[in-house]
Design a protein around this nucleic acid. Sequence first.
DNA 1: GTAGTTGGTTGTGCGGTCATAACTATTTTT
DNA 2: AAAAATAGTTATGACCGCACAACCAACTAC
Lengths: 174, 174
Amino acid sequence: MTAAPASPDPDPEAPAAPELPAAAEAPAAPDPAPDPGTDPDRTALHAWRGLRTLLLERHDRRKEVADALGMSFNRVKALRRVAAEPLTLRALAEFLVVDAPYTTVIVDDLVRRGLADRTPHPDDRRCKVVRVTAAGRAAAREADRIMDTPPPALRTLAPRDLAALDRIVAELLG
Amino acid sequence: MTAAPASPDPDPEAPAAPELPAAAEAPAAPDPAPDPGTDPDRTALHAWRGLRTLLLERHDRRKEVADALGMSFNRVKALRRVAAEPLTLRALAEFLVVDAPYTTVIVDDLVRRGLADRTPHPDDRRCKVVRVTAAGRAAAREADRIMDTPPPALRTLAPRDLAALDRIVAELLG
DNA sequence: GTAGTTGGTTGTGCGGTCATAACTATTTTT
DNA sequence: AAAAATAGTTATGACCGCACAACCAACTAC
């Protein structure tokens, strides 16, 4: 754990950083989208920005899970895949969209952490099957737990709204 | 542009990679969430996973914008910030949550690309103000355009649903 | 006016991501 | 049986993100 290199720092006692005189211009970036209004495109933009803020800024589970497990998100992704089902290095490589050598590196890392092991393939002695260990399964479960934690506000949403959201999201996914 | 190291490869003529015999076990990870049902927590989980899929997998605008502009997403973030409003390196560092030396590196990069320049601060000769150039403003606009592009399905949603989604998202953001 | 603080730069280095090349051990093809 | 393909490993090395240390210039406070 390292100290934050730059905090939001709303300290009212701070010596006040030098501000720009703000040369009477356009009012600089209305980020939360101009106005929902009734125009569908405008509303879509507003909703889209809101969704991005919610998922990418407010609740960045990738970062959380990487921090919690002390490994990069890609390792977590590999671990979860392996925990879901033992697979060959080749299959893992395909899943992660990386080449074979790097897959070896990734699996080496998981093995070194005691989260996975390599076992011979029953039918093909060239292959190795990557399996999760008990510790790995626990870690993967923890990862799942974090990834699957919705924002608190989602769980306290009015049931009708929650149902509507779920239905709409399903529709958006086709 | 490099060739994809491993494609999804659903080629039916391929020699068929060695599959595991699938040792009659639990049915391996029901990822799209078990069932919406009527349980609020279950519905919340389902909706949350759907949102993550939509935002993080189907429409990863960060990757798109980085690819389109040929720079890392962090550079894009810096560029957009600078384009919104000229600011000092210190302020930019705070915004990006990186330390001062790395901020210098980032700004150097933007300057080298012709997207920004450094100008003296009117009131404090220690400071430098980073401003966007014309090319930088164009690049930032392009970045904005990509980031602000909702999934097509969102724009073709029934107006009632779109309005509902927008309202619910706003509520989730507090 | 000297001391301490702040803004910025340069240099160095660590860890992560990832590819290429080269090699071994198998399996498949002919 | 020889040739070709496939699974995996072992270098090696590139690039990126980013921090830390050390430093200078300018501003602030005593």
